[in-house]
Amino acid sequence: MAKLTEDMKQLIADGFPFIATVDEAGNPQIGPKGTLRVLDDEHLIYNEETGRQAWHNLQANHKVAVAVHPYPGMKGIRVEGKATIYTEGQVFDDAHQFAVDKKLPDLIGAVVITVDRIVSLDAGPDAGKELANEPVKD
């Protein structure tokens, strides 16, 4: 797995993330995920609350991309990886407690994303530069 730096973790904490998934016909979908946060150096997590398109897409295809670019700002990253869905167990319980603590809607699942690849979304000459690429072998 690729590792997030402290600067990347702060960028994720400060920014507003969007996730991209694809449906069974290969159609792309993108949407905001306000609960997305860093779980550890190699994983992101978010609380799935709506159970709509992204949730549907991740049931069949676990590939996901996350884009974070704070506004205003000229720096950003895209994280690519695979999602694992938890509907019970410690990961789910911790995500539920996060929702309670933040006074958020209850979740239907916790989605953990492995950090396989990180790409710069900075404005300027570093746009699209690969920063890390260490996919987990299936």
Score class of each variant (00 low, 15 high):
K9T: 01
K129D: 01
I118E: 03
L104T: 02
I118Q: 02
V112W: 04
T84H: 10
W55K: 01
S120Q: 11
K63W: 03
N57H: 08
Q97I: 09
G51C: 13
G26M: 07
L104C: 04
E88T: 15
P135G: 04
F16V: 00
T21G: 09
Q53I: 12
F92T: 03
A67R: 09
H43L: 13
P28I: 04
G51K: 09
V22S: 13
K9H: 03
A2E: 04
F18D: 01
K137I: 12
A20R: 07
V79G: 04
D101V: 05
I85N: 04
Y71P: 00
R78H: 01
L58Q: 02
K63M: 03
A54D: 02
T21C: 11
I118W: 03
E48H: 09
H96S: 13
A13H: 11
V91R: 12
R117A: 05
Y71A: 15
A2H: 03
G124P: 09
G31V: 09
V115K: 08
A127D: 08
K102F: 13
G128R: 10
Q97A: 13
D138H: 08
G109C: 09
T21V: 03
E80H: 10
T114I: 06
R117Y: 03
D23A: 04
I12D: 03
L11F: 07
T87F: 01
Y86K: 12
L131H: 07
I30M: 14
V119L: 14
K103V: 06
V115N: 02
D122N: 15
D101A: 10
D106V: 02
A95S: 15
F92Q: 10
L44K: 08
Q59L: 14
K33Y: 06
A25I: 00
W55I: 00
E42I: 05
G109K: 10
L131A: 06
P72L: 13
A83G: 13
T84F: 03
G26Y: 08
G34L: 11
T84V: 11
D126C: 10
L107T: 05
P28L: 11
D122R: 14
E48V: 06
K75M: 08
E6A: 14
L104Q: 07
D94I: 10
P125Y: 08
E80L: 12
A54G: 11
L104W: 11
D93K: 14
P28D: 03
N27K: 14
A83N: 11
L107D: 01
T5K: 08
M8I: 00
